[in-house]
Design a protein around this nucleic acid. Structure first.
Lengths: 149, 149
DNA sequence: TCCATATTTGCTATTATATGTCAAATGCTG
DNA sequence: CAGCATTTGACATATAATAGCAAATATGGA
């Protein structure tokens, strides 16, 4: 039974994992709550939080993102652009969604689906491989870029 | 109409793209032909080729792998371990295969399937996204590691 | 066969993302 | 509110990959 991810609940989640709720972590968290739809890199988060707190260090951002991913608040993604990108993990998905990555503007949209599960059963039997996670990405051109090509 | 990828045919392919057939490129190519089943990183290729030609430089390996990928001889993969891994691209696949990555020993096995194509049609219509490529990875434990866990 | 030249090589320096170190600062429990 | 383990920020370091450049070389044409 997971709680809805409000600011307060996530702070408690931090405390429950014996992590301290520092102003830096709060700022970073708030930044993500203001950009639930984005897939931010550490560097991008760093830029955003510096507006609210110019004293914050890059290493702190990296460490905070690590922790938030560890306790299940964020998901760490690799879209092949050489840096990790984090997104808010919504509680209402039993299996995570997949991504549509635009090769032109870099925009990432999302795509939900469940049929991979049935496939996993087949693979497990056929290849003697115990699957614990999967990652599906589609590369192409988003509506906007396709129009102006 | 693509030729079968023998050593000689790939050398000609290089020449057709106005790339020179240097001893370094030959050594690297030979190394891949001797390890068709592996998914080698640039660093691993570097180590292997140094046995045959200790004079070879790391930058040359990177450049050669780039070229071989560009002309379709190799496929560049990202398995999330922080380095690119290259594999021989076999001509007999219209769509590329997918990978089963062992989280314990790092072994990569392969898995062929076609059903993603029909899904692409659905996504294209539903999300207004023109798909040109996809990438599916399964993470888990291979037969060997699962036994000794 | 040899020449001319554009390509390629190897070395080194550099970029970029991310992590490690450590003294100083600080959230939290009692 | 006091003590202390955790956390922070600055800097150094690690690692993958690329850039720059002089010297070496593969190749098409004489």
């Amino acid at each position: 039974m997971e709680e809805i991810k409000t600011f307060e609940n996530i702070c408690n989640l931090l405390r429950n994992h014996s992590y301290k709720v520092t102003p830096q972590r709060q700022t970073i968290l708030q930044t993500f709550l203001e950009h639930v739809d984005r897939h931010l890199s550490a560097e991008e988060v760093y830029m955003l939080v510096k507006h609210q707190n110019p004293e914050i260090g890059l290493a702190t951002v990296y460490r905070s993102l690590d922790i938030l991913a560890e306790i299940g608040v964020l998901l760490k993604n690799d879209f092949g652009d050489g840096r990790s990108r984090y997104e808010f993990s919504r509680k209402d998905e039993h299996h995570h969604h997949h991504h549509l990555i635009c090769l032109r503007c870099g925009d990432v949209s999302e795509f939900d689906d469940d049929w991979l599960e049935s496939l996993e059963t087949v693979i497990t039997k056929r290849n003697h491989f115990k699957i614990v996670d999967h990652d599906l990405k589609f590369y192409g051109y988003c509506h906007k870029c396709e129009e102006t090509l």
